Simulated assay, not measured.
Amino acid sequence: MKKTLLAAVAAAAFPAMASAHFLLEYTTDTMIEAPGDVPVKLIFWHPFENGHVMDLEMPEEFFVIHRGEKTDLKPTLEPVRFTGGENEGAAFKGSVPVKRSGDYVLVTVPAPYFEASEDIYIQQITKSFLNRNELPTDWMEPVGLPTEIVPLNKPYNVLAGSTFTGRVVANGAPVAGAEIEIEYMAAEPDMDTAASSTPVTAPPPGGAVVAVSDDNGYFTFGIPKAGYWGFAALGSGPVTEHEGKDLSQDAVIWIRAWDLE
């Protein structure tokens, strides 16, 4: 039976091996000043603890939405290697053309990844956000993905110490009782060296940080620290099987929080 909690934030105790997988669409900034091509790296990783890097296959889709128009970015992708704190894995680098003012909603639909330790496939359909010249245009609109998290706060300038609210949907309908794992990018990719930085903090005790969506698909989380935060609604998508095995089709969103100065 699914749980229903109003604006719930909960902690769940998982063993260390169950630490969160997260697909990153990493750019060094979310606020873009000058027009041009913004470098991006796609990495499947455990950035909170600078943990294991999973091999990423060529995504099924990689595109950007700007002013309601979709641009295919898959031709920009090139395979690279990425080194985390534990190992090296296959990743991709690409670019996002940022010219006009407004929001740029970056979307990756990866190929399902087989997690042998759990005997399941994982597909993390991921969104992140860039903005040029502080003009909001697209951030609050659903993209129309099989499953996604729609932000209710402008996701590229959330204030540390405030809250972030999102809504989990599948085929446009709210998902009640979705388990949402929450990840801090304590270690960030270095765009030049293809390796991770030193983590700035350690994960909290008790395993993965988890929220649960309410009857209408909403969840709220208090943002304690500036930086990049990821939210993954586990198994929220409509597809539950791939090549004869269970599939966890997850909705992932990355936001950027800032300290007031």
Rank of each mutant, 00 (worst) to 15 (best):
230 G>K: 04
211 A>E: 10
64 V>F: 00
201 T>G: 11
110 P>W: 06
26 Y>A: 10
56 L>D: 04
150 V>L: 02
42 L>V: 04
29 D>V: 08
243 E>H: 10
202 A>I: 12
162 S>W: 13
109 V>G: 00
176 A>G: 04
19 S>Y: 11
102 G>M: 01
179 E>C: 02
108 T>K: 00
76 T>N: 00
38 V>P: 00
52 H>I: 12
56 L>S: 09
11 A>L: 12
231 F>Y: 07
21 H>L: 05
188 E>A: 07
65 I>W: 00
209 V>N: 04
164 F>D: 09
157 N>E: 12
103 D>K: 02
240 T>A: 14
99 K>L: 10
109 V>P: 00
79 P>A: 05
102 G>Q: 02
153 N>D: 14
170 A>P: 06
192 D>V: 10
166 G>F: 03
132 R>D: 06
72 D>T: 02
107 V>K: 01
127 K>I: 02
38 V>F: 04
188 E>N: 06
93 K>L: 01
89 G>R: 04
179 E>F: 06
259 D>Y: 15
198 T>A: 14
189 P>N: 04
129 F>Q: 00
79 P>D: 08
251 A>S: 05
87 N>R: 03
178 A>E: 03
125 I>G: 00
174 P>G: 07
70 K>H: 00
141 E>P: 03
16 A>N: 09
87 N>P: 08
191 M>G: 01
171 N>M: 09
183 E>C: 13
180 I>H: 05
210 V>K: 06
203 P>Q: 02
208 A>T: 12
245 K>R: 12
202 A>W: 08
221 F>Q: 04
111 A>N: 13
202 A>Q: 15
80 V>R: 08
224 P>Q: 11
57 E>V: 06
119 D>F: 14
10 A>C: 13
79 P>K: 02
222 G>I: 08
68 G>C: 01
184 Y>S: 12
87 N>S: 09
144 G>F: 03
147 T>I: 01
255 I>M: 05
120 I>G: 05
196 S>G: 14
140 M>E: 13
36 G>Y: 03
204 P>N: 15
99 K>T: 13
114 F>E: 10
68 G>V: 02
89 G>A: 07
86 E>A: 13
245 K>D: 12
179 E>P: 02
142 P>N: 05
12 A>V: 14
171 N>Y: 02
144 G>L: 07
97 P>Q: 02
194 A>N: 15
32 I>C: 13
49 E>S: 12
31 M>A: 13
201 T>Y: 13
161 G>T: 14
247 L>V: 08
220 T>I: 06
5 L>Y: 15
105 V>L: 00
43 I>A: 01
115 E>D: 13
89 G>K: 03
17 M>F: 15
184 Y>W: 08
10 A>R: 11
141 E>N: 07
189 P>Q: 03
234 L>V: 15
29 D>L: 11
224 P>S: 08
159 L>V: 15
46 H>C: 04
166 G>I: 07
168 V>Y: 00
12 A>Q: 15
243 E>N: 14
136 P>I: 13
35 P>K: 00
138 D>T: 05
119 D>H: 14
206 G>K: 09
67 R>L: 07
256 R>D: 14
83 T>P: 01
26 Y>I: 05
